[in-house]
Amino acid sequence: SKGEELFTGVVPILVELDGDVNGHKFSVSGEGEGDATYGKLTLKFICTTGKLPVPWPTLVTTLSYGVQCFSRYPDHMKQHDFFKSAMPEGYVQERTIFFKDDGNYKTRAEVKFEGDTLVNRIELKGIDFKEDGNILGHKLEYNYNSHNVYIMADKQKNGIKVNFKIRHNIEDGSVQLADHYQQNTPIGDGPVLLPDNHYLSTQSALSKDPNEKRDHMVLLEFVTAAGITHGMDELYK
Results as ranks from 00 to 15, higher is better:
Lys2Gln: 14
Lys2Met: 11
Glu4Ala: 10
Glu4Gly: 13
Glu5Lys: 14
Glu5Arg: 15
Gly9Val: 03
Gly9Glu: 08
Val10Lys: 04
Val11Met: 05
Val11Leu: 07
Pro12His: 02
Ile13Phe: 02
Ile13Thr: 02
Ile13Val: 04
Leu14Arg: 13
Glu16Asp: 09
Glu16Lys: 13
Asp18His: 14
Asn22His: 04
Gly23Asp: 03
Gly23Cys: 01
Lys25Arg: 09
Lys25Glu: 04
Lys25Met: 08
Lys25Asn: 11
Phe26Ile: 01
Ser27Arg: 12
Ser29Pro: 00
Glu31Lys: 13
Glu31Val: 13
Glu33Lys: 09
Asp35Val: 04
Thr37Asn: 14
Tyr38Phe: 15
Lys40Gln: 05
Leu41Gln: 01
Thr42Asn: 09
Thr42Pro: 01
Leu43Gln: 01
Lys44Thr: 13
Phe45Ser: 02
Ile46Ser: 02
Ile46Leu: 07
Ile46Phe: 06
Thr48Ala: 04
Thr49Ala: 04
Thr49Ser: 11
Pro53Ser: 01
Val54Met: 06
Pro57Leu: 02
Thr58Pro: 00
Leu59Ile: 07
Thr61Ser: 15
Thr62Ala: 06
Ser64Leu: 01
Val67Met: 14
Cys69Gly: 03
Ser71Gly: 12
Arg72His: 09
Asp75Val: 12
Met77Val: 05
Met77Lys: 03
Met77Arg: 05
Lys78Met: 11
Lys78Glu: 05
Gln79Arg: 13
Gln79Pro: 06
His80Leu: 14
Asp81Asn: 04
Phe83Tyr: 14
Lys84Thr: 01
Ser85Ala: 11
Ser85Pro: 04
Met87Leu: 13
Met87Ile: 05
Gly90Ala: 00
Tyr91Cys: 02
Tyr91Asn: 01
Val92Ala: 07
Gln93His: 02
Glu94Gly: 03
Glu94Val: 05
Thr96Ala: 09
Phe98Tyr: 11
Lys100Arg: 10
Asp101Gly: 09
Asp102Glu: 13
Asp102Asn: 02
Asn104Asp: 04
Asn104Lys: 11
Lys106Gly: 04
Thr107Ile: 03
Arg108Cys: 07
Arg108Gly: 01
Ala109Thr: 01
Ala109Asp: 00
Glu110Gln: 15
Phe113Cys: 06
Phe113Ile: 04
Glu114Gly: 01
Asp116Asn: 14
Thr117Ala: 06
Asn120Ser: 13
Asn120His: 02
Ile122Thr: 03
Leu124Pro: 00
Lys125Met: 08
Ile127Thr: 14
Asp128Val: 04
Asp128Ala: 08
Phe129Leu: 07
Lys130Gln: 11
Glu131Val: 10
Glu131Lys: 09
Asp132Asn: 03
Asn134Tyr: 11
Ile135Asn: 03
Leu136Arg: 09
Gly137Val: 02
Gly137Trp: 05
Gly137Ala: 08
His138Arg: 11
Lys139Met: 12
Leu140Gln: 03
Glu141Gly: 09
Glu141Val: 07
Tyr142Asn: 05
Asn143Tyr: 09
Asn145Thr: 14
Asn145Ser: 13
Ser146Asn: 12
His147Pro: 01
His147Gln: 07
Asn148Ser: 07
Val149Ile: 14
Tyr150Phe: 08
Ile151Phe: 02
Met152Arg: 08
Ala153Val: 04
Asp154Val: 04
Asp154Ala: 13
Asp154Glu: 06
Gln156His: 10
Lys157Gly: 15
Gly159Val: 05
Gly159Asp: 11
Ile160Val: 15
Val162Glu: 15
Asn163Asp: 12
Phe164His: 03
Lys165Glu: 13
His168Tyr: 06
His168Pro: 00
Asn169Thr: 14
Ile170Asn: 13
Ile170Val: 10
Glu171Lys: 10
Asp172Asn: 11
Asp172Val: 05
Val175Met: 13
Gln176Leu: 14
Leu177His: 12
Ala178Ser: 06
Asp179Tyr: 09
Tyr181Asn: 07
Gln182Leu: 00
Gln183Leu: 11
Thr185Ala: 11
Ile187Phe: 08
Ile187Leu: 14
Gly188Asp: 09
Gly190Ala: 03
Val192Leu: 06
Val192Glu: 07
Leu194Val: 06
Asp196Ala: 14
Asn197His: 13
Tyr199Asn: 05
Tyr199Ser: 07
Tyr199Cys: 12
Tyr199His: 07
Leu200His: 02
Thr202Ile: 15
Gln203His: 15
Ala205Thr: 15
Ala205Gly: 04
Leu206Arg: 00
Asp209Val: 03
Pro210Ser: 07
Asn211Ile: 06
Asn211Thr: 14
Glu212Val: 01
Lys213Gln: 04
Lys213Thr: 06
Arg214Cys: 06
His216Asn: 04
His216Asp: 00
Val218Ile: 14
Leu220Arg: 12
Glu221Asp: 03
Phe222Tyr: 13
Val223Leu: 15
Ala225Val: 05
Ala225Thr: 05
Ile228Thr: 11
Thr229Ser: 13
His230Arg: 12
Gly231Ser: 09
Met232Ala: 13
Asp233Tyr: 15
Asp233Val: 06
Glu234Gly: 11
Leu235Val: 10
Leu235Gln: 13
Tyr236Phe: 12
Tyr236Cys: 13
